[in-house]
């Protein structure tokens, strides 16, 4: 009778506090755009904004599953600064199969702060998308959107550290600066490797080398907003930024 009461109490407890078994299951799940890769043994590196708690470096938190939810055997490794986790498959990916790289919200920072979301990156072997860094078949550095045990409990860092142009919002126009001169304004833009042309309206920036573009523009007024666009070599807009003339 006592056992029945205890069992009943446990079931009741679980009904009242269901999250106790779910852990972080109730947090948001973010599914990123699908990537196309060429390297069948491509490894993925996830970069965090701060060192992770080594105890959370587990295959339950970092894993790759195929479309039939079968987990792909993969090895995990942590960088010396404990901010990068690399997931390397032990067998090649199959053509035509979609795989899902998952980083669970159970991952904690060394300050014991959880991620606020699960992140899933679908990918498959195929003709590389423009956003895939490793489309040429090189392996090694990952291009998965990094998730991060952030400094604040409520947010994870969703800024991509990838050098993939279309996925790396905020990383193609790395820095935009303006400077006022007596007869014109100077706008300097530091870009990623992928940006080969920068424009502000119909005005094209002059390339100075070493990923720096400059435009000297007369007639701009203080407080005026200028939209700067970075283009890929094929003419695709990779990023747009607005600057205010000082």
């Amino acid at each position: 009778m006592k056992r029945i009461i205890i069992l009943f109490m446990m079931v009741g407890f679980l009904i009242v506090f269901p999250g106790i078994l779910q852990g972080q299951a109730s947090i948001d799940e973010i599914v990123l755009d699908e990537r196309k890769i060429q390297d069948p043994l491509k490894s993925w590196t996830v970069t965090f904004t701060q060192p992770i708690n080594k105890g959370t470096l587990k295959k339950q938190n970092f894993f790759i599953k195929d479309e039939n939810k079968r987990q792909v055997k993969a090895a995990l490794s942590l960088s010396n600064d404990e901010r990068k986790v690399t997931i390397t498959p032990e067998s090649p990916y199959k053509k035509g199969v979609t795989y899902y790289l998952s980083v669970k919200g159970n991952v904690k920072s060394d300050q014991n702060e959880f991620l606020t979301e699960h992140t899933i990156l679908p990918f498959k072997i195929g003709e590389a998308s423009k956003g895939s860094k490793d489309a040429n078949g090189s392996a090694g550095s990952g291009d998965k959107k990094p998730t991060s045990p952030s400094e604040n409990k409520s947010s994870s860092d969703t800024n991509s550290e990838s050098s993939s142009p279309s996925k790396a919002a905020g990383k193609n126009l790395v820095k935009v600066q303006t400077k006022k001169h007596s007869h014109f304004d100077e706008i300097t833009v530091q870009v990623s490797d992928y940006v080969t042309k920068v424009k502000a309206g119909s005005h094209e920036f002059e390339y100075k080398g070493n990923n720096v573009f400059v435009l000297y523009q007369p007639g701009l007024k203080s407080g005026e907003k200028v939209t700067v666009k970075g283009y890929s070599m094929s003419g695709k807009v990779l990023e747009t930024k607005e600057v205010v003339i000082p």
Partner: peptide
């Protein structure tokens, strides 16, 4: 003249 080249993905 300096131009910037970025090989296209894929």
């Amino acid at each position: 003249k300096i131009i910037k080249f970025a090989a296209e993905e894929g």
